[in-house]
């Protein structure tokens, strides 16, 4: 398959902790094609940030890769020498971290940081500076030229996020990974950034892996969606199918909880009762079983992530004929 850009193949990752190994990712598989925009949604703590830091090999010291491959253009990134990995990061693959402070060095001016990331370019310093200012302007920062000399703490939360996005776009990557890049942006700017990302995708055929809790943004931006729960993929498919015909009870409950659906003022907002399983002491059977209102006797076995039709997968026994009997 020549148009596949990134293949995550049966990836399992643990964190070693005092309470034993925390199984943060288990058997994760999905692909991203060239120029495709894929969204990841899932509850807080389900492993989204762990997944992307694993792709980039920027993991915490207590991380252990247990199994699987992460192939980028056919090459397993987990086997690549660190020097080659460094070359890939920021050139072929760019990232916008969940916490913009992870991108920005607090003691360097924004302008200096934007010059530094252009170290591969042969342009003169003045040209690089002009390009940095132009990128800041493109994400809606007023007075970009003057603001290059300011330090990260002198910008608002949303400005820091936009600067991180601008920096990630500078290298025109083949793959942009963005971890909740719009949480601090007002709705008008959020839409502007979505449009900017779509342009980028069209202009450079850049693929985007986009993590967000804002289902409205996912619906608007993404071609496909991967739904994660407690360290596993429970469903994946085209954005329309996921929103209109979800095949996993967790996906359905998640969508139902979105206050964006509730137009009348509600004092009590819907939630999914129960608790997320302890990843250091995994329960048997379906990972969602404790909280699932449709569970049956069959659910004490782990349901496979089964192909329901081309491009739509879900891990729930309800999609298997035998379960209905």
């Amino acid at each position: 398959m020549t148009d596949t850009l990134l293949e995550i193949d049966r990836l399992s990752v643990d964190y070693e902790t005092a309470r034993g190994d925390l199984k943060a990712l288990r058997d994760i598989s999905f692909d991203i094609r060239k120029g495709e925009i894929v969204g990841i949604v899932g509850e807080s703590g389900c492993g989204k940030s762990t997944l992307i830091s694993s792709i980039l090999r920027l993991t915490a010291p207590n991380t252990r890769f247990r199994q699987g491959e992460v192939r980028f253009k056919g090459q397993d990134l987990l086997q690549l020498p660190e020097r080659k990995m460094r070359d890939l990061r920021g050139a072929d693959i760019s990232i916008v971290f969940q916490d913009p402070m992870q991108t920005h060095n607090p003691v360097l001016s924004i302008g200096q940081q934007m010059l530094d990331i252009q170290h591969r370019s042969k342009a003169s310093k003045a040209e690089k500076r002009a390009r940095a200012a132009q990128m800041l302007g493109a994400v809606g920062i007023p007075d970009p030229e003057a603001r290059l000399d300011q330090f990260p703490h002198e910008f608002s939360g949303g400005m820091r996020q936009r600067i991180a996005i601008a920096m990630a776009l500078m290298s025109e990557p083949d793959l942009l990974i963005a971890d909740e890049p719009t949480t601090a942006l007002d709705a008008t700017l959020e839409v502007q950034i979505i449009e900017r990302l779509q342009e980028l995708q069209q202009e450079f055929n850049c693929a985007i892996l986009f993590i967000s809790h804002h289902l409205g943004v996912i619906a608007e931006l993404c071609d496909r969606v991967v739904v994660m729960y407690a360290g596993a993929v429970v469903e994946s498919g085209e954005v329309r199918e996921i929103f209109h015909d979800p095949k996993h009870p967790y996906t359905r409950r998640l969508i139902d909880c979105d206050p964006g659906h509730i137009k009348e003022r509600a004092r009590v907002l819907p939630t999914i009762p129960g608790e997320v399983p302890d990843l250091a002491n995994l329960p048997g059977g379906c990972i969602f079983r404790d909280r699932c209102d449709l569970a049956t006797a069959r659910c004490v076995e782990v349901p496979p992530l089964a192909k329901l039709k081309e491009g739509h997968h879900a891990a729930c026994w309800l999609n298997h004929k035998e379960a209905a009997e």
Binding site: V41, G42, E43, S44, Q98, G157, E180, T183, A184, H213, L215, R253, L254, C257, D258, P259, V268, L269, P270, T271, I272
Partner: peptide, 18 residues
């Protein structure tokens, strides 16, 4: 509270707001 629910999934967000 400055963006108290940014980064929370809609279910946890609902719990916090409740």
């Amino acid at each position: 509270a400055d963006e108290p629910t940014a980064g929370l999934d809609v279910s946890v967000q609902g719990e916090l707001l409740n």
